[in-house]
Design a protein around this nucleic acid. Structure first.
Length: 271
DNA sequence: ATGCGGACCTGTTAGC
DNA sequence: TGCTAACAGGTCCGCA
C-alpha cells in the first residue's frame, strides 16, 4: 500500500489527533516486525508529549522531548485513529493511546514495517543518515541525478527506486514517471543525458504531486475504519496495464521484471 | 564502491 | 470447488 503519497497522506491525516497530545499508554501486541519492537517503549514514552509528526522518505518520525519514535509501514502497513475501547483486530500490532481518548493503531499483515526508538538526532540514525534528497526538494534536480548516475550501469528504474539516490519513488511511480519521461526502464542510468534527466525529474515530481493531491482529497477522516486512499487505480498509464494499448501510440504495454519487481512500459514510446 | 539476489511475512488471486 | 503457485505498493543485508 504505502508509497510516498500514501505515507504523507497518512501523516497529514493523523496529525490533528496526535500533535501536542500526551501519551497515556503504549500497547505492543506483536514485537516481531522487521526488527523487534523495543520492549521498553511503554515505560520510556508514557507521559511524553508528541510534539510533531515528521516524515523523512517513507519513515514517519514521532518527535518527543526525549527522542524520536521511528515508524515505517513496509509493504502492507497502515495507521488509523480509533478509540481505546475499540477491540484490536488481526494484525493490529501496536497502539499509542493518547490523553484525548484516541489511539493511533498500526496494522501490518506482512510485518515488513518497523517501530523503533532513538534518542539520536534522526539525521544521524543508521536508517536515515544516508537517504537521498526528498523528491520535492530543490536539491533533487537533473544535475544531481546526472552526476550521481555517471558510470552507473544499473537500470534507470532501479536507480531512481534506490532511496539513497532519492527517497519516495516506489515501484508504481517509478514505472509511471519513466513512461511520462519517455525513458525505457531498462536503460543504464549512466547512459542518460542531462536533458532527459531534466524531463525525468519533472515527471517524478508531477506524478507524486498528482497522487498526493488525489490522496489528500479522498482521505479525510482517519477515525473511519476503512479510511484508506483509493485514488490511485484511476490515473495509471502503464502500471498493471500489461497487454493494453498505450495511450500515446496504441502499442501493447509490456511487463518485465527488473530488480525482482514488476515493471511496465511502452516499448515504442520509451527508449 | 557497485550490483545482484535473498531475506523478512501474510493475504489474495490466477491457473490447473 | 479446491489445491497450489505466483505475486503484492519496501528495503536492508551479505556476498561476489
Amino acid at each position: 500500500m504505502p508509497e510516498l503519497p500514501e505515507v504523507e497522506t497518512t501523516r497529514l491525516g493523523i496529525l490533528p489527533y496526535i500533535k501536542g497530545k500526551q501519551i497515556r499508554h503504549i500497547t505492543v501486541r506483536e514485537r516481531r516486525l522487521r526488527w523487534p519492537v523495543p520492549r521498553t517503549l511503554n515505560k520510556t514514552l508514557t507521559g511524553q508529549t508528541i510534539n510533531d509528526v515528521l516524515r523523512r522518505g517513507k519513515y514517519l518520525l514521532f518527535k518527543t522531548d526525549i527522542g524520536t519514535l521511528i515508524l515505517h509501514l513496509g509493504m502492507s502497513g497502515s495507521l488509523r485513529i480509533c478509540t481505546s475501547k475499540e477491540p484490536a483486530t488481526k494484525h493490529d500490532h501496536f497502539d499509542i493511546c493518547l490523553n484525548n481518548n484516541k489511539c493511533l493503531r498500526l496494522n501490518d499483515p506482512r510485518r515488513f514495517g518497523c517501530v523503533l526508538w532513538t534518542t539520536q538526532a534522526t539525521e544521524k540514525h543508521k536508517l536515515l543518515k544516508s537517504l537521498g534528497p526528498e523528491p520535492f526538494d530543490d536539491s533533487f534536480n537533473a544535475d544531481y541525478l546526472y552526476q550521481r548516475s555517471r558510470k552507473r550501469k544499473l537500470a534507470i528504474k532501479n536507480f531512481i527506486m534506490d532511496a539513497h539516490v532519492v527517497v519516495g519513488v516506489g515501484n508504481i511511480y517509478a514505472s509511471e514517471s519513466l513512461f511520462l519521461a519517455g525513458i525505457n526502464p531498462k536503460r543504464a542510468a549512466g547512459n542518460i543525458s542531462l536533458a532527459r534527466y531534466e524531463r525525468l525529474v519533472s515527471t517524478i515530481k508531477e506524478v507524486l504531486t498528482a497522487a498526493l493531491n488525489a490522496g489528500g482529497s479522498t482521505l479525510k477522516d482517519f477515525t473511519a475504519p476503512n479510511g484508506k486512499p483509493g485514488y490511485f487505480q484511476h490515473h495509471f498509464k502503464v502500471y498493471g496495464k500489461t497487454g493494453l494499448a498505450c495511450e500515446n501510440c496504441n502499442s501493447a504495454i509490456h511487463q518485465i521484471t527488473l530488480g525482482q519487481r514488476s515493471t511496465f512500459y511502452c516499448p515504442s514510446c520509451q527508449r
